[in-house]
Design a protein around this nucleic acid. Structure first.
Length: 290
DNA sequence: AGGCGGTACTG
DNA sequence: CAGTAC
DNA sequence: GCCT
């Protein structure tokens, strides 16, 4: 059975999760995730490239090492480095870092302090109220963990663009009518008109951000407030769809619109370009370096 | 060999 | 301040 | 881990 890009990407992601929990160098972890993303967006089957003897290191984020690992997976169907790493950990532990709010440090704390080895274990512990007592955790974190676990079963959370639009439009009108709000722009992948949208990134200009995020958090469609501060709020609306609201000053509108429209890869290239010119680019503007 | 994005919110 | 997310 |  042929190995496809998707399978290799999944293996690399799994490797990243395991290394993450093991406390490996975060940049090494990121390299696996980056390569996984490259493979998934690749229009060609990497197996064909291997068969044709093509140079895999030409792919962005794929160097000598990962090219060898891709070849290994394609030709043998095995990924020995992953199997090796997995033997160091309970098999279900690495899954925990996929729960939003849980990074490698918290997962290790759960494992060491409560012996939690899987999402199943975590669910039981959280239901028993044991998680809230851990250092760095609290009642709110515990509640959120349970919600995230419940969401995990639900089928893919991405929405088709048209469905995202039906959520975005009323929110946009509502924000435009909000006192103190100037411009309103739905940025992110929605603005890039991607086929599906994972969340909504709404950019707003206002002088008093805290007031806007506070009002927004009380919008009738908001079912859950994940965070809310003076410049940003993250909420979920009916159906569990995530909406990020960012508030910037009017004079940062242009750079914020650029920044929050992305894509992430595009932003990274732009930042590099700025650095090469001795400048610094962020969501607030383009500035002279240092 | 040395850098790897920069900023905001929670606990 | 550490951890996490974006 | 990759990239410059």
């Amino acid at each position: 059975m042929a190995v496809h890009n998707r399978d290799i990407a999944e293996a690399f992601r799994r490797m990243a999760d395991v290394l993450d929990v093991e406390g490996e160098n975060p940049f090494r972890v990121r390299a696996y995730r980056q390569a996984a993303a490259t493979l998934e967006s690749l229009p060609r089957d990497v197996g064909d490239m291997v068969a044709a003897g093509e140079d895999l290191t030409r792919l962005p984020g794929v160097g000598e090492d990962l090219a060898n690992k891709i070849r290994e997976i394609v030709t043998t169907g095995h990924f020995r480095a992953l199997e090796e790493e997995l033997s160091h950990l309970p098999p279900g532990l690495a899954d925990l870092v996929r729960i939003p709010g849980l990074g490698p440090k918290r997962v290790r704390a759960l494992y060491q302090l409560l012996g939690i080895e899987s999402i199943e274990d975590l669910k039981k512990a959280a239901e028993a109220g044991e998680v809230a007592n851990l250092p760095g955790f609290g009642a709110r974190t515990e509640a959120r963990i349970l919600e995230e676990i419940a969401r995990l079963g639900a089928t893919e959370r991405r929405l088709r663009l048209i469905d995202a639009e039906h959520i975005a439009n009323p929110l946009t009108s509502w924000l435009e009518a909000c006192p103190g709000v100037g411009r309103v722009l739905v940025a992110g992948s929605f603005r890039r008109r991607k086929e599906t949208v994972g969340d909504l990134d709404i950019l707003v200009t206002a002088a008093d951000g805290a007031d806007v995020t506070r009002r927004f958090s009380k919008h009738p469609d908001v079912t859950e407030v994940l965070s809310a501060g003076p410049t940003r709020a993250t909420v979920r609306v009916g159906g569990g769809f995530q909406v990020d609201l960012r508030v910037v000053d009017e004079n940062a509108y242009g750079s914020a619109a650029l920044y929050f429209t992305g894509s992430k890869a595009h932003n990274i290239e732009l930042r590099k370009l700025a650095i090469r010119h001795g400048w610094k680019l962020n969501e607030y503007g383009l500035f002279a370096g240092e």
